[in-house]
Design a binder for these strands. Structure first.
Length: 616
DNA sequence: CAGTAG
DNA sequence: AGGCCTTACTG
DNA sequence: GCCT
């Protein structure tokens, strides 16, 4: 059975980051090859040119290509095999011509990775000497006479087979997990609103008997559930045969969604029950009960952010999110029992804060020269933790030092340094309104037609805060026509009246939206402010406004809700999406036009929240 | 690609 | 053992 | 650092 899947290789053995995989995919696909990325496996099909390209790319990645070459299939072998409708065992081993099997115990290295099982497999099977038929009809072919050695290989093959089967099952199994894991993850992320009823965390989800399981939607019944064979074609073309789509369906959009999303309705029902736990539905959390603890942990979070300790950052962010949502104050270590996101280490820290009011760890780290320097340097726009750290190691530790080393800064950072005092100040609401008025007036003057373009000031301004950190102004053309150089012209016009420095100039992206980032002030005496202007096509406007209105926390909640309901939400739009194992995106549909925020809420089935109530 | 920002 | 949000631009 |  496993002969047809030996081309799949565990990704764990290859040191490829997501970015690298993306690069590799683009490279391969733009040269006619194909790459299939499973949850943990990588498969590449292509020509000699593909292999050559990969070889070069691997060199760039500083990876030893030879070590991973098994991943690349011999194209002749593939086409031959497909032609013969069968992947021939004999031919398979032509892939590894230089490997000569030596059935000697000492020659079999103790491999530790899964990849090696494949290699061992390849070495053991090619010469047929003994055929054994098992009870279940499976035929095993051995060339190893030494019983002990054979058992060893058999065991390895079995393990390998199990692993691959598991992985395949994860990709192909469209039946959703109803277990609490999903819900745990959701609370986990700390994005969600936790109501008083914490018992939900411990409640067992009832087992659904097979007869009651729901495999399809009313208007989209599954007529056939086909077990996909382990064949290369199925590997490349997942899931299409699962659903009968001859049924009347609302729109082409939905038709496609359902084709790829059998059981969506069942899934939606599941999440509908949990809706109240999402911030985007529940609204602002009640008054926070654990401020002291949270403040101290946030200090630690900031330090870890500067140290670029990504893992810890997430852990602390989750813990903080969870504590923020907790409806009661923590009084004793008893209260911390069995809390998600709070493990031993964080628990200890919380106890320390409860007892002494602070953390020795924070004191220690905050006092460190490096951390002082980094928090000082990152005040400058354009300098993040990494740049700050390199500066620190060059002996540059304060803003004064930076001023003496202007040649080390890029233009934006120089501007950021020059205006650091101004940009740190919050913008009073009146001034923000004034800036918005100036921009709006200029938009109308430039377009020549009142109301042709509309603009919205987002961010905390829209959430009706008294002050805001920067101005986020979103613009769209209401008749949906091309906007050409509108944003550029607008910026030119604003140069004398508002804008003083440009940070990034607008450039058309593939989504047809443009972003400008800059600095401006309402008068020569006024404080400089960060000003962002964004031009979006009107189909994306709703999503963009929603996204840039925030808050951060609210956004995450909403994106998560979208994910759980079979969509992907970003500033560019709402897309139906099929996700497989590990939440990996398998398929992304066409964008659903949302000109107004309301459209997004409607499609996601959420109650509309006025911006004011989104400050979570 | 890494770093930065949103 | 590997992932913790996504997308885009700059240099 | 936490979780599966």
């Amino acid at each position: 059975m496993f002969k047809d899947m030996s081309f799949m290789f565990p990704l764990a053995t290859v040191n490829l980051t997501n970015t690298r995989i993306r690069t590799l995919t683009n490279l391969i696909e733009s040269n006619g090859g194909q790459m299939k990325l499973g949850p943990d496996t990588l498969m590449i099909v292509g020509s000699d040119a593909t292999v050559e390209l990969c070889q070069k790319q691997f060199a760039k990645f500083n990876l030893d290509f030879e070590q991973y070459r098994y991943q690349f299939l011999n194209p002749d072998w593939v086409s031959q095999s497909l032609l013969n409708k069968k992947l021939q065992e004999q031919k398979k081993f032509q892939l590894f011509p230089e490997v000569v099997f030596q059935p000697v115990l000492e020659e079999v290295p103790e491999f530790k990775t899964k990849l090696v099982y494949v290699e061992a497999l390849a070495k053991t099977v090619p010469v047929r000497e003994e055929v054994v038929e098992q009870d279940d009809g499976d035929i095993n072919i051995y060339n190893i006479k030494d019983n002990e050695l054979r058992m060893k290989y058999e065991k390895r093959m079995e393990e390998f087979r199990r692993d691959i089967l598991k992985e395949y099952k994860q990709i192909l199994d469209y039946e959703y997990d109803y277990d609490l894991d999903n819900f745990h993850n959701q609370v986990d992320d700390g994005y969600e609103y936790l109501l008083e009823d914490l018992s939900i965390l411990k409640k067992e989800e009832p087992q659904i008997p097979e007869s009651e399981k729901f495999y399809g939607d009313d208007d989209c019944q599954i007529t056939e559930t086909r077990k996909v064979k382990f064949d290369i074609l199925d590997g490349l073309d997942l899931g299409k045969s699962v659903v009968n789509v001859e049924q009347p369906i609302l729109s082409a959009q939905l038709k496609e969604t359902k084709q790829f999303n059998p059981g969506l309705k069942r899934k939606q029902q599941f999440w509908e029950a949990k809706k109240g736990y999402f911030v985007c539905e529940a609204g602002a959390a009640q008054k926070c009960q654990n401020n002291e603890i949270i403040e101290e942990l946030e200090k630690l979070l900031k330090i870890y952010t500067n140290e670029k300790d990504k893992g810890r950052c997430i852990a602390y962010r989750k813990a903080i999110g969870f504590l923020k949502a907790l409806p009661y104050p923590i009084k004793s270590s008893e209260d911390l029992k069995d809390m998600p996101t709070i493990g031993d280490k964080i628990k200890k820290k919380i106890i320390e804060i409860m007892q002494t009011g602070k953390l020795t760890k924070v004191q220690k780290l905050e006092g460190q020269e490096k951390n002082v320097a980094i928090s000082e340097l990152t005040r400058v726009w354009g300098i993040g933790p990494t740049t700050a750290a390199t500066f620190y190691f060059k002996g540059i530790k304060t803003l004064e030092d930076l001023k003496k080393n202007l040649h080390l800064l890029n233009r934006n950072q120089q501007v950021g340094l020059q205006l650091v005092k101004d940009l740190e100040q919050r913008i009073p609401r009146e001034e923000a309104t004034l800036i918005f008025e100036i921009v709006k007036r200029e938009i109308d003057d430039l377009s020549g037609v009142q109301g042709l373009f509309k603009a919205t000031a987002c961010g905390s301004y829209r959430r009706e805060k008294e002050t805001c950190g920067d101005m986020d102004i979103l613009i769209t053309r209401c008749d949906g026509k091309n906007t050409e150089d509108f944003l550029l012209n607008l910026i030119t016009r604003l140069e004398g009246k508002l804008l003083t420095h440009h940070l990034t100039m607008p450039k058309r992206t593939e989504h047809d939206c443009e972003t400008y980032m800059g600095i401006g002030r309402v008068s020569n005496q006024a404080v400089h402010r960060r000003i962002d202007l964004k031009l979006y096509p009107k189909e994306q406007y709703g999503c963009a406004v929603l996204y840039f209105t925030g808050s951060d926390h609210y956004n995450r909640s909403m994106r998560l809700w979208a994910q759980k309901n079979g969509y992907t939400l970003s500033d560019h739009g709402l897309y139906p999406t099929q996700r497989g194992a590990h939440n990996k995106k398998l398929w992304k549909g066409e964008v659903i036009p949302c000109e107004e925020e309301m459209d997004v809420y409607k499609i996601l089935g959420l109650k509309y929240k006025p911006p004011k109530e989104r400050s979570v």
